[in-house]
Structures are given as structure tokens and as C-alpha cells.
């Protein structure tokens, strides 16, 4: 306990704590759990870390992110100590140079950190991968994503109007964390596709825009199912950003069963969308962007959504009924790239 270095405030009760923390801009607007010494120490113990341990250094600010500050913000977000290894792994992933943490959090484009968890830790901490997967349900999903937001605000100064310049942002900036439904999926889990050994737990983090929901319940043909996703990606390329980067694809059970019955693996979906999610510059004229059709290499210039099929992050998740799916578009092409980080448990 004596090793904790943060300033301490003695406050009357939970209401007084919330009043002060809201007033000082230390929250996301929702109530927080008071970060007492005892709760913070429990989180540090669960992670097996000393308070002064540096998890990562954010390169633009040259600012170290210590275990103590991570634990304080995790408690505020409502995290149980068992969530700490996931939160730590997300921080490490975001501080990899290819993630471009400063650019993706400061940009007017307003992305959030989309987190996908794989491996045995999902079940140990109760992460949801099924019903309502992109929204409210489990404490673990809600609080892990929220902890990352509070760390960005309080440790890295990503305060709206200051170092967070989002014009709009999106609801995922409150929390945006899912698990993959590995037990009910016929396919290789995302983390293993991205070189994490089977049996290990990992997070994959990308700077994502808000999810776009799709629906196709009128076919059994995997090509047609994939084509609905590809069409939504093409649409995003025209109305939002044309640059190639990581797109995430959320595929629910009802569609997985049809795709798998046709013998398709994740890589077949990736290959199809890699070939199909392409537009030409002149298509911009159809969405009110005539002014920029003749710039660059001219109206016939071709653009693909993915630099390679591997750029597509295919995730098995969602409730058992319904032909719905979602794409999560990248913040700005490949200016931020998805990072997969192994979760270390002490």
C-alpha cells in the first residue's frame, strides 16, 4: 500500500467522489467507482505488477503509462481485478508504433479502440461473445473498454476539444470490447490467424469507426453473404474514406453455419472481399463528391478496401438467430493498423 504514489483525496462518500471527479473532467460522464487504495492494490496484485511498473510509453507525448494509473482508472471504470491482464494487453497493443495512438485518438475522424479478445481468459472473466455482442450485457466487456477510455482521458489527455479533436466520435468511445465465440465457431480464431499460439489468450485492437449493421437472410450462397458485407465496405469507401486498411467483419452464427456448410473458411471470406471490395474514383460522383473525381490519377483510378486479404479481421460473434452482420471500418486507411497482443497472466 505504501508504494502508491498518486495524490490522495479524503472525501465524504461516493457522491462526493463522483462530484469531484466529474468536475475535474476525470470521467466519461458516467458515474465511477471510487478508486480506493485497497481496490487499486487488488488490481495491481491481480496483474502481478508494482505500482511504478511502466506498461508502455506513448511516443508523441513521451509519457509513461504506469501500472498504478492503469489500475486506478480500471477501478473507476468498474473493472474486477481479474480483468487487469486484458486492460494491460490493450495498452501495450495501442502503444505499438503501427497503431498510431496519437493520430487515431486526436483526429477529427473520431475513432474508438475496437477490442477483440480470444483465448481461455474470455470464459474465466465472463466476456460476452453472443447475444447483443456489440452492446450492453457483460461487466467484463463494458468495463474493459471503458477502462481504456478513462486511461486515454486521464493519463494521455484525450479530452474532447483538447487532444481529442473528434468532430462526432461514436458510441463505441464509451466502450467497444467483444470476445470471439470460439466454442461455437468452425473457424480458426482471429488471434491464431494473427500468429498467436492456440491455447494462449490475446487481444486484437484496431482504431475503428462505428459499426455498420448489415442483413441478408435470403440466401445460402456464401458468395452472396460475403457480397453483402463487401457492398457495405464499398459504400463506406465512398461516403467516408477510400483508403485501404483493416476492416473488421462480425459474422453471427446463422450466417457462419451457411458459409461453413459450403466449405468456406475465414480465408475464403477474406479472399472474396479482397477481390470484391473495390471502387473506382468516378463512383465518388454518385455520393456527392464530384469535386474530387478528377484529382489524383483521375476518374478511372481504382481503389481496394484491403491491401491484402489478411487486412480483413473476421470475427465469429453475435446471437444465434438472425442474418445480421457488421463491418467495423478503419479510422483512416492504414494510418493505424490493427495490433494483436498476447495477454500475460501472472
Amino acid at each position: 500500500m505504501t508504494q502508491l504514489r498518486s495524490p490522495i483525496y479524503d472525501l465524504a462518500d461516493i457522491v462526493a467522489v463522483n462530484d469531484m471527479y466529474h468536475r475535474r473532467g476525470w470521467t466519461d460522464g458516467l458515474p465511477i467507482l471510487p478508486p480506493t487504495e485497497e481496490l487499486v492494490q487488488d488490481c495491481l496484485d491481480a496483474a502481478g505488477l508494482a505500482p511504478s511498473a511502466v506498461i508502455s510509453v506513448e511516443s508523441v507525448r513521451q509519457r509513461p503509462i504506469t501500472a498504478e494509473k492503469v489500475a486506478i482508472n480500471a477501478v473507476m471504470a468498474g473493472c474486477l481485478p481479474a480483468y487487469m491482464p486484458v486492460v494491460i494487453a490493450v495498452i501495450k497493443a495501442m502503444c505499438q508504433p503501427e497503431f498510431n495512438l496519437h493520430g487515431s485518438t486526436a483526429s477529427t475522424g473520431g475513432s474508438a479502440q475496437f477490442i477483440v479478445v480470444n483465448g481461455p481468459i474470455r470464459q474465466r472473466i465472463g466476456l460476452n461473445a453472443t447475444h447483443n455482442v456489440l452492446a450492453n450485457h457483460s461487466r467484463a466487456n463494458a468495463c474493459i473498454g471503458r477502462a481504456i477510455r478513462l486511461i486515454l482521458i486521464n493519463v494521455l489527455g484525450c479530452v474532447p476539444g483538447q487532444l481529442d479533436r473528434s468532430t462526432l466520435g461514436h458510441p463505441g468511445k464509451f466502450t467497444f470490447c467483444i470476445a470471439e465465440d470460439e466454442e461455437d465457431s468452425p473457424w480458426t480464431p482471429l488471434a491464431q490467424q494473427r500468429s498467436i499460439p492456440a491455447g494462449a489468450s490475446a487481444v486484437t485492437v484496431m482504431a475503428g469507426e462505428s459499426p455498420h449493421q448489415t442483413m441478408n437472410e435470403w440466401t445460402r450462397d456464401p458468395k452472396e453473404i460475403a457480397e453483402t458485407f463487401a457492398a457495405e465496405i464499398r459504400h463506406n469507401m465512398l461516403t467516408y474514406s477510400i483508403w485501404a486498411g483493416n476492416y473488421a467483419l462480425i459474422v453471427p452464427k446463422q450466417l457462419r453455419e451457411l458459409i461453413a456448410a459450403a466449405g468456406w473458411q475465414k480465408h475464403d471470406i477474406q479472399e472474396h472481399i479482397y477481390r470484391s471490395a473495390r471502387v473506382v474514383r468516378r463512383d465518388w460522383a454518385t455520393v456527392g463528391k464530384q469535386q474530387i473525381v478528377n484529382l489524383g490519377k483521375g476518374a478511372d483510378q481504382r481503389f481496394g478496401a484491403l491491401h491484402s486479404p489478411d487486412d480483413l479481421l473476421v470475427v465469429a460473434a453475435g446471437g444465434p438467430a438472425g442474418g445480421f452482420g457488421a463491418i467495423v471500418p478503419p479510422w483512416l486507411g492504414s494510418r493505424s493498423q490493427a495490433v494483436t497482443q498476447i495477454i500475460e497472466t501472472p
Binding site: S6, P7, W26, T36, K69, M76
Partner: peptide, 12 residues
């Protein structure tokens, strides 16, 4: 009983 709580921000 008061609550002893910790500062979540980076020390500027």
C-alpha cells in the same frame, strides 16, 4: 467514514 481515493491523472 471518509473514502480515501487516488488521483487518476498523469502528474504534469
Amino acid at each position: 467514514m471518509t473514502l480515501r481515493v487516488l488521483d487518476p491523472t498523469f502528474d504534469n
